[in-house]
């Protein structure tokens, strides 16, 4: 009997703890498929964040480490500098990467650290129960912006991909989404490229994945995906923001 669909080998058999309708499962799968297709599980070392994906070390079958909040790129740097022949990736949310860990993010990108960063942007702190994130949209209601994010009071959401793309350092910065099949397929390509770049020694590759948080947004999974399309993507447009190799080749 032909197998038409199966779990990627780079995922363990541990059941995911994510809420119903949460796209973390999709994004984990895309990372694992990329690892499988590139045949690198045996030499990959993953860095889990603090946030909803904190237990990612149980889900990925490669060697894993749990980093302190926001410090995943620094921890990944330590690993990669000791073991340059291994493949090192971080998997981080918006609070982790764009708030408490912004310095580590910017400087690892500036150093063109040869690592792969998967950045899941769902515009909210999920694990702690739905507080305002550095990427929460203007007017967005959260537990800590109960009257909607007032940009005059707490500032504007940060467009991480656009900001990092201004740096000389990084090799590849792209934003993708996982709200429909077409976007999921494109997300997969970008994630795989981010790993391929590392294999080829090209340097820092970050894929920002615009995701959803039905639980803390207070929406059904379906409605949350619609909100990604109607509200998130206009502020966070999909696209390749930097691709040094493609630019060199005049693409």
């Amino acid at each position: 009997m032909a197998v038409v669909f199966e779990k990627p080998k780079a995922l363990t058999n541990v059941p995911l703890h994510y809420c119903p309708g949460c796209p973390h499962g999709i994004i984990h799968r895309l990372v694992a498929e990329a690892i499988d297709e590139l045949g690198i599980e045996g030499k990959t070392i993953g860095v889990a964040p603090v946030g909803c994906a904190v237990m990612a070390y149980d889900y990925f079958a490669c060697d894993m480490i749990e980093a302190a909040h926001g410090r995943a790129p620094a921890t990944a740097t330590g690993i990669k500098r000791c073991r340059p022949d291994n493949i090192v990736f971080t998997y981080q949310g918006d609070g982790d990467l764009a708030s408490i860990g912004m310095a580590e993010t910017v400087h690892s990108a500036a150093r063109n650290e040869n690592i792969t960063v998967i950045f899941v942007n769902n515009a909210i702190y999920g694990m702690t129960g739905g507080q305002m994130a550095p990427t929460s949209l203007p007017g967005q209601v959260t537990q800590t912006s109960p009257y909607g994010r007032d940009v005059n009071h707490c500032g504007w959401p940060i467009k991480v991909s656009e900001m990092l793309a201004t740096l000389e350092g990084p090799e590849y910065i792209a934003r993708v989404a996982v709200n429909n099949v077409k976007n999921v397929n494109n997300a997969k390509k970008a994630i795989k490229k981010a790993f391929q770049n590392q294999i080829e020694g090209k340097g820092f590759s970050l894929v920002e994945v615009v995701s959803a948080c039905p639980t803390n947004w207070g929406m059904t999974p379906q409605k949350a995906l619609e909100w990604v399309e109607s509200d998130m993507l206009p502020y966070y447009p999909i696209g390749v923001y930097k691709d040094r190799t493609a630019a060199k080749e005049g693409k």
């Binding site: 070392i45 860095v47 480490i65 980093a67 302190a68 410090r71 620094a74 921890t75 990944a76 740097t77 330590g78 690993i79 990669k80 500098r81 000791c82 073991r83 310095a103 580590e104 400087h107």
Partner: peptide, 14 residues
């Protein structure tokens, strides 16, 4: 210093 000790953490883990 925060980044450096977390680099040490990652390196030590290898």
């Amino acid at each position: 210093e925060v980044a450096s000790i977390n680099m040490v953490y990652g390196a030590a883990a290898t």
